Computed example of a mutant assay.
Amino acid sequence: MNLSIVIPLLNEEESLNELHQWIVAVMTTNSYSYELIFIDDGSTDSSWQKIQLLATTNPNVKGIRFLHNYGKSQALHAGFAKAQGEVIITMDADLQDSPEEIPELYNMIMGKGLDLVSGWKKKRYDSVIAKNMPSKLFNWAARKTSGVKLHDFNCGLKAYKNTVVKNIEVSGEMHRYIPVLAKNAGFANIGEKVVVHQARKYGSTKFGMERFINGFLDLITIWFISRFGKRPMHLFGALGVLMFIIGLFAATYIGFIKLYKLYNHEPTILVTDNPWFYIALTTMIIGTQLFLAGFLGEIILRTKNNEERYKISESL
């Protein structure tokens, strides 16, 4: 099978028929063998009924329905697990991503040997203040932090080799950072393609300004996981030892001054009246806690089980 097209959605009943027809036209024109996987992330409208109807008329259509809204990352995770194509395409269901881009994305993966190709919505039809400016700031921070030189991390239109999606773990709200996850997994051959961004035709966006706040928090998380996710002791242990050594030096200094004054019969104060005593006590306690945090992190990392992050109600 050439292509698996994975489409997460939430309350997109108005766009599904048009999107399906558009994708089928592109697949037919290019003679691709394909599967079209819709993941209904807990829609409250008739989206799932539309998917069921499409599946009865087109055997290439498959569907997954979540019990309730778990988020785009979980939807993509379920879609990736089901996908069987040589190349996996992800796109949004709101008709803002054009299926006409799929052939070139496919050729960039199969012809140029890229592991992943990310879309770049160079010209956007979103609000400048509400989306464009925050998005540019977010993408700049993501490039600097991750080292992945993409212009548009948020673009839902991407193409992957099958081996990439089968070897990365998309959880939480990490769908923005799949290229970073892929790079960390050893798939560093990442390309970018300018894609057409279209104005939303039906309904309204499901993402508010909070997605940028969450995005920056996730960026910090993925930076930490990239650097220390497999070796938390390297961070917490190092900081703990450093803090403990500072406290130990402070305590040694207090003891030395105390003994020196006693030896020379000079007046002394109580150890607890010396501010260095509290510096020593605090830093040694913090150092011990940080070291234990690293130790516990190592234990958790070695004993964790893969927990179920979503529940599927129906599957086609």
Rank of each mutant, 00 (worst) to 15 (best):
E13P: 15
E13S: 12
V24S: 09
S31A: 12
F38N: 07
S47R: 03
I51E: 08
L54C: 06
T56F: 03
K62D: 01
F66W: 02
H68F: 11
A78K: 05
G79A: 05
K82M: 15
Q84F: 11
I88Q: 01
L95F: 04
Q96H: 00
S98P: 00
P103D: 01
E104W: 04
E104V: 02
Y106R: 06
G111A: 08
D115H: 14
L116E: 10
K121V: 05
N132P: 00
M133P: 00
M133V: 14
M133L: 15
K136V: 09
K144P: 00
S146C: 03
G147E: 01
K149M: 13
G156K: 05
V164T: 08
K166Y: 09
E169T: 09
E169R: 11
G172I: 04
H175R: 10
V180C: 01
I190G: 06
G191F: 03
V195C: 06
H197C: 08
R200E: 06
K201A: 13
N214M: 08
R227L: 13
F228L: 05
R231V: 14
M233C: 09
M233S: 15
M243R: 09
F244A: 15
T252P: 00
T252D: 06
T252F: 10
Y253S: 13
F256K: 13
N264I: 02
T272Y: 15
D273N: 14
P275V: 05
P275M: 06
W276I: 11
M284E: 12
F295I: 07
F295C: 12
L296M: 13
N306H: 13
K311G: 02
